[in-house]
Amino acid sequence: MAIDTGPAPTTVPEPPPGAPPKDLVMHLWRGDASGGRFQEYRVAPQEGEVVLDVVHRIQATQAPDLAVRWNCKAGKCGSCSAEINGRPALMCMTRMSTLPTDQPVTVSPMRAFPIMRDLVTDVSYNFEVAKLIPAFKPGPRDPDGLRRMAQVDIDRGQEFHKCIECFLCQNVCHVIRDHEENKPRYAGPRFFVRLAELEMHPLDTLDRRNYIREDMGIGLCNITKCCTEVCPEDIHITDNAIIPLKERIVDAHYDPVAWLGRKITGRPVPLAAAEARKHTGAAHAQPAAPATPEPGDIA
């Protein structure tokens, strides 16, 4: 299970008047699976820095073996997820100027995953879940070898494709953050987004609804929206992915007539129909209404 990241740090004393800008005080979690603690580092501030810059500077000048995962440093790869002052975020997209300076800045590893070392966690759970997802299965191409889809029909899928797999949504999801035992039967928000993208793909031919209900454990999600709040790509995970998935499953399971109706109006539609809908100005991909608790949900 996750580590104890220790007590909250102390406050930083104000420098005397006229002194140069005070050093940044950083409390970085150091340790491994057997345990660890926050260690204090002091570094001079530089203009326009993000948390990852400061962590790198500490690594390059004071702690060469400080383990931190990162790649692009531009918010595009989702490698540098951590908890900054207790709040899950990407280190590369959190500017130091947005953090309070009267107390140390704490950086600790994501809590829902086992520690490897320092700020690096073992996120292999996510890659195991990814292997279980039934892949995209399109029908045949059009006679000229192309595939046609209306932009209006893929807008929602493109929102889901913005996911950079930072796994912050998985990290904050109560179902697994506080209940390790749920991991084997729960895919988590990242993979509900993935399943939603497949289910809403206009050319996909598989029906994954039973699988999502029975094997991916979507009923365990109780829609607290913590995942949506931390998503660095602003994907409306709960409203646009999870709730519509829950609705589809409930419809399929309890009301075949409603499901059929949805199949006709809300699912893959011929291009001409989609175009017609667009031209009449009908809105597409409406935000889902808040869902009422369902029999399958565990509060």
């Binding site: 491994d32 690594q59 060469p64 073996d65 400080l66 490897m116 070392r117 320092d118 690096v120």
Partner: peptide
Amino acid sequence: GNLQFNPG
């Protein structure tokens, strides 16, 4: 340091 996840 040691061999374990050692960026240096």
